[in-house]
Amino acid sequence: MEAFDYNKVLAATDGDKELAVEIIGIFQDQVPVILTEIDRAIQAGDARQLQQAAHTLKGASGNVGAMVIYGLALSLETVGKNNEMQKAAELLEKISEAVKTFEQATVHLKGASVE
């Protein structure tokens, strides 16, 4: 699976590249907040909160073509739903890695929005 699927985000925006860059920016601003929430849920052992936060991450990542994050968020959501908290920390670590990869994969788009 690709870390960044540009076609996905273009489908989401109906080919609008400027909007694509804009929502990727919103996503990147939002990610640290969601990751903190996930971390907090894991520390507190709060499966419901974990499921919520993972769900938010899933929704946002799918729209920006962050397909690896999307897949991991989906797994994490299931972990929350089934209350298998012992699996959560490892997934969070993988998500943090995937976020870095996504940032590298999208860095070239910034400043190239006006074409």
Partner: peptide
């Protein structure tokens, strides 16, 4: 509530 989906 998700800002990305909302903006889009």
């Amino acid at each position: 509530d998700d800002q990305v989906s909302q903006k889009l």
